[in-house]
C-alpha cells in the first residue's frame, strides 16, 4: 500500500455461511464505494478486497478472525462499515 496512513482492525467473522460468494460480493460492493485500498488477511492469505477471486480464495469460515487494512481518506469509515457487515450473523439481503 502506498505512502498514506494504513488503518488496521481485527474483526470476528459472524456471517453464518462464512465468506461465501454472496458475502464476498457484498464486501466488494461496499469497498467500491470508497476511494482507498482495502486488504483482508485470514491465516496466511491476504486478499485484495476489490477482487472476487482473491476474496473467495480466503475461504474464511464463520467465527474466524479477519485482519482488515484500509488506506485512503475515508479508511476509518470503510473499516466501520466492513466491521458492521462482517460481524452481523445474517447476510444482508441486498
Amino acid at each position: 500500500m502506498n505512502g498514506s496512513i494504513v488503518l488496521r482492525r481485527t474483526v470476528r467473522l459472524k456471517i453464518t455461511q462464512g465468506l461465501h460468494i454472496r458475502a464476498c460480493s457484498n464486501v466488494i460492493a461496499l469497498v467500491s464505494r470508497h476511494s482507498g485500498q482495502v486488504r483482508i488477511t485470514y491465516g496466511d492469505k491476504t486478499a485484495d478486497a476489490s477482487s472476487m477471486f482473491d476474496l473467495v480464495q480466503l475461504a474464511a469460515v464463520p467465527d474466524s478472525m479477519l485482519e482488515l487494512e484500509a488506506t485512503g481518506d475515508d479508511a476509518e469509515q470503510v473499516l466501520n462499515e466492513l466491521e458492521e457487515l462482517l460481524s452481523k450473523p445474517e447476510e444482508p439481503s441486498s
Binding site: 460468494i21 460480493s25 485484495d48 476489490s50 477482487s51 472476487m52 477471486f53 482473491d54 439481503s93 441486498s94
Partner: peptide
C-alpha cells in the same frame, strides 16, 4: 444477487 456475484468475477481487476 447471485448474478451480481458472477458479475464481480468478470469485472475482477485482478483477473
Amino acid at each position: 444477487s447471485i448474478f451480481g456475484a458472477h458479475l464481480q468475477f468478470v469485472r475482477d481487476p485482478k483477473l
